[in-house]
Nucleic acid binder design. Structure first.
Length: 701
DNA sequence: AAGCTTAGACTTTTT
DNA sequence: GTCTAAGCTT
């Protein structure tokens, strides 16, 4: 009796504060398959976490629940929120992680069946390394390939695409186009070489897990027996191999219920193999299937929602939903046009300055654009006004050259037979051993089925001996001084710091700064490890040694290193892709020109519906102010791109014409019409999706 | 083997 | 305009 008095209020608590649709989703029968269509800002994570808490409260064993996210960030956020709902102890037992970390776990456990000699050490190559491996394959290719014409990165792109679709080399049909046919052959060679070097790429984490499940039904069964419920976040971004992965775990829903949450209108990773039709496919496989729409938005103003709804309605392929809000306030919502990109940037910076004067905090403000290159003029304009900003984009921490170099030494300490790391480390800092020599070792290693490290043992060159000696010192450093001591040694004992000061000139200081940051990242990692903050996120039931875990995190959780910028008081500049899932009181969307956003490239087929979803994502980031703009001309690759230039220059084309998406917004929603240039305002939004003509046009050229 | 010069490219990027 | 990477020179 007394125990029920504890349980009952808790159950009531759990549902408090949920709206009708959220509650409906949370309390669906535990064995029901469900699709939750959760629009932007409708409480998606809330539903997901409460659903899990609800299941546990109904008596489901936490260990039989798997929740899959796409990013580590989303995983840890969910973990945190679940801690608050169900307590530390229970949250600890949940299986929660990204597709890739789950796949890695499967491979580490069962990789020996697939022929991996050291599966528990497995840690995937990042994209650059995968391309490097392909480049080596291409260089060794019988027919001979001109790497200038056939670019490794392009071929890798297509191979990755095939892999995301679940196509193994022998399943790819012969290609009509010669270059693609070459890719097909390279794919097979790439896979062979990759296996020979006992490594895997990102896609393999899922692909090989699937192969294992397919060939060893008994192993699939052991997972299926343990599990009762699988939840998937951001389901719209799931690609075919990930869906197959879920099917293996759930026995295609026959024995495990599957609860997927996402928003088809926010599917913006189609170019990475995500299937726009994934919800439909899923529902076909999981009948009967519940469908709940979360449409009440808690983020945006009603004007923004009306505009966003109007735009997204132009998409043919969507399940359909309409966001609404109870909010009564109307924030500023506007569209401006400028003569060129610099003036646009200037005006945006000016408006931000005003907002700051009026008491806004820099971190409440974001500028969003379609492509990274657009950040430059904005940065300039912000610097002039001394407005603090941060650009989120470009390379992440672990992709920087100097950090990769130091990581190569860390990796060699963990495993001297890591060829990729060996070849990188021995070349930097320079020690009189060049590409030719290394290449020679490599072929020898391949011929003997050995690693470069093994081959090099017979070398008598003093430089080689010194290098091997250095590696030994690093091992000693790790043994005696732990992860942080090793990290320090990888920067200083290796003399990487000196190397970068000498060679990188201007950037030298910055490089060393990054190397120091790497050391402190190792320190933070070590601390998290000791305080128990790691094991659950990397979902390793038997965590390996700290070094391997650290290396894996560096590859698979590139965000883990950004602890310094977290609470910075800065304006955020980022691409719309990066902004997905975030929200800001003040949002500026710039560069809304036809051709730029939507991005239209003469070389690549563009997907207008996906571009439109991207625009939809951009608009729905704003909590209060949404300010959009475009420019009549823009500097592109050092050339001016205007409406005029488009006529004779097939390369650039569309500059200066407003985005078609703007014309899809009902004109009455633009309070003041289009703001032209600095202050002049037109009575109505003339010339949206068209050229600005006539006497009006003259003024701002 | 290392350093300098020039040619080309250039959406988006959760892992 | 700015980057990287291949290739030529020393």
């Amino acid at each position: 009796m007394t125990t029920t008095t504890i349980a009952a209020p808790a159950e009531a608590d759990l549902l408090i504060g949920l709206n009708a649709a959220q509650e409906e989703a949370v309390v669906l029968p535990l064995d029901a398959h469900a699709v939750i269509l959760a629009g932007a800002g409708t409480g998606k994570t809330r539903v997901l976490t409460h659903r899990i808490a609800w299941a546990i409260e109904q008596g489901m064993d936490p260990a039989s629940i798997v929740a899959v996210t796409f990013t580590n960030k989303a995983a840890s956020e969910m973990r945190e929120r679940l801690r608050a709902l169900v307590g530390d102890a229970v949250a600890q037992n949940l299986r929660l992680g990204t597709f890739h970390s789950l796949g890695l776990k499967v491979l580490r456990r069962y990789g020996h069946i697939l022929g991996f000699r050291n599966p528990e050490r497995l840690s995937p190559m990042d994209q650059d390394e995968s391309v490097a491996l392909l480049r080596r394959v291409m260089k060794a290719y019988d027919a001979g390939i001109d790497l200038k014409i056939e670019k490794p990165r392009d071929h890798y792109g297509l191979i990755g695409h095939w892999k995301d679709k679940g196509l193994e080399p022998q399943q790819v049909r012969p290609q009509k186009e010669a270059s693609r046919e070459l890719t097909r052959h390279l794919y097979a060679a790439y896979e062979k070489e990759k296996f020979a070097s006992q490594t895997v790429d990102f896609a393999d984490l899922i692909l090989l897990s699937n192969r294992l499940f397919r060939t060893r039904e008994d192993i699939a069964k052991t997972f299926q027996k343990k599990l009762r419920m699988i939840l998937v976040d951001e389901f719209q971004d799931t690609n075919p191999i990930q869906l197959e992965f879920i099917h293996h775990l759930s026995n295609t829903g026959k024995s495990v219920s599957t609860f997927v949450v996402g928003d088809d209108d926010q599917s913006i990773y189609g170019w990475r193999g995500a299937d726009a039709d994934i919800f439909q496919t899923f529902m076909n496989h999981h009948q009967p299937c519940e469908l709940v729409r979360l449409e009440e938005n808690y983020r945006c103003t009603s004007v923004v929602l009306d505009a966003a709804n109007a735009v997204i309605q132009h998409n043919e392929t969507r399940i359909g939903k309409n966001l609404w809000t109870q909010r009564q306030d109307v924030g500023p919502f506007g569209l401006s046009v400028y003569a060129d990109g610099d003036r646009e940037a200037d005006a945006v910076a000016e408006q931000i300055g005003t907002a700051l004067q009026q008491g806004a905090s820099p971190k409440e403000i974001a500028i969003l654009y379609r492509v990274n290159a657009m950040s430059r003029p904005l940065e300039k304009a912000l610097i002039v006004r001394s407005i603090p900003y941060k650009v989120f984009g470009g390379l992440n921490f672990y992709q920087r050259r100097e950090v990769k170099d130091a990581m190569a030494y860390l990796r060699l300490t963990a495993d001297p037979r890591d060829d990729a790391a060996f070849m990188r480390a021995i070349a930097v800092p320079r020690r009189g051993i060049g590409a030719k020599t290394i290449e020679g070792w490599q072929t020898a290693a391949r011929a003997r089925g050995a690693s470069v490290f093994d081959v090099v043992q017979g070398e008598t060159k003093p430089a080689v001996a010194a290098f091997l000696h250095l590696l030994n010192d690093l091992r000693v450093a790790y043994r005696d001084a732990g992860l942080v001591g090793l990290a320090k040694a990888c920067v200083f004992t290796t003399k990487l710091d000196e190397f970068y000061i000498e060679t990188a000139k201007e950037r030298g200081e910055e490089c060393v700064e990054n190397l120091r940051e790497l050391i402190s990242t190792a320190g933070v990692f070590h601390h998290r490890l000791r305080t128990g903050g790691i094991a659950q996120e990397s979902i390793a039931h038997h965590p390996g040694d700290p070094l391997s875990e650290f290396i894996t995190e560096a590859v698979m959780d590139s965000d883990a290193a950004v602890h310094l910028s977290k609470k910075a008081e800065t304006v955020s500049l980022m691409t719309v892709h990066k902004a997905k899932g975030l929200e800001f009181p003040h949002v500026f969307v710039v560069g809304l020109e036809e051709g730029e956003f939507p991005k239209i490239s003469p070389f690549r087929e563009s997907n207008i519906e996906e571009e439109r979803r991207l625009f939809y994502v951009a608009m729905t980031r704003s909590k209060y102010q949404l300010q959009m703009s475009y420019a009549l001309s823009r500097w592109k690759f050092g050339r001016e791109d205007t409406e005029m230039a488009g006529i004779d220059d097939a390369h650039s084309g569309e500059g200066g014409v407003s985005s078609r998406f703007l014309s899809e917004i009902p004109s009455h929603l633009f309070g003041d019409g289009i703001m032209v240039g600095d202050k002049k305002s037109l009575p109505s939004p003339v010339a949206i999706n068209g050229r600005l003509r006539g006497s009006d046009a003259g003024d701002w050229w």
